[in-house]
Amino acid sequence: VFVDDHLLEKVLELNAKGEKRLIKTWSRRSTIVPEMVGHTIAVYNGKQHVPVYITENMVGHKLGEFAP
Rank of each mutant, 00 (worst) to 15 (best):
K20L: 10
S30V: 02
A16P: 01
K10M: 15
P34D: 11
L8S: 02
K10C: 15
H49L: 08
W26E: 06
G46T: 07
N57W: 13
H39W: 06
L8Q: 03
K10D: 07
R29Q: 11
K24D: 03
V37L: 13
V1Y: 06
K17H: 08
S30R: 02
R28H: 05
P34C: 14
R28V: 05
E65T: 11
V33N: 04
G38V: 00
L63F: 07
H6P: 04
A67N: 04
G64W: 14
V43Y: 02
E9N: 15
A42Q: 04
K20C: 08
I32T: 04
L12V: 09
E13A: 12
V33A: 05
D4M: 01
A16K: 12
T40V: 10
F66R: 02
Y53H: 10
D4H: 04
G18I: 02
E65L: 12
Y53R: 11
V3M: 03
K10H: 13
K47M: 10
D5M: 15
N57C: 14
V33Q: 05
L7C: 02
N57L: 14
P51R: 13
K20H: 10
R21D: 11
F66S: 04
P68F: 10
I54M: 08
E65M: 11
D4S: 05
V50N: 12
H6Y: 15
A67V: 08
E35Q: 13
S27V: 06
T25E: 01
V37S: 08
I41F: 07
R29T: 10
Y44L: 05
P34A: 12
L12I: 11
G60T: 11
K47N: 10
M58I: 13
L12E: 06
I54R: 00
Q48D: 11
G18L: 05
V43G: 00
T31K: 05
I32G: 00
L14Q: 09
I23R: 01
E9G: 12
A67F: 04
K24P: 07
K62N: 08
S27D: 03
V37F: 14
Q48A: 12
A16Q: 11
V50G: 03
D5N: 15
P34Y: 14
K10W: 08
A16T: 09
V3A: 02
N15F: 02
T40W: 09
A67I: 06
K17G: 06
H6V: 15
G38W: 08
S30H: 02
G64P: 00
L8I: 08
G38Y: 09
M58F: 08
G38A: 10
T40N: 09
L7G: 00
N57D: 13
R29V: 12
A67H: 04
T31H: 15
Q48G: 11
D5V: 15
F2W: 14
K20I: 07
E9R: 14
G64T: 04
Y53S: 11
T25Y: 02
H39L: 04
L63E: 00
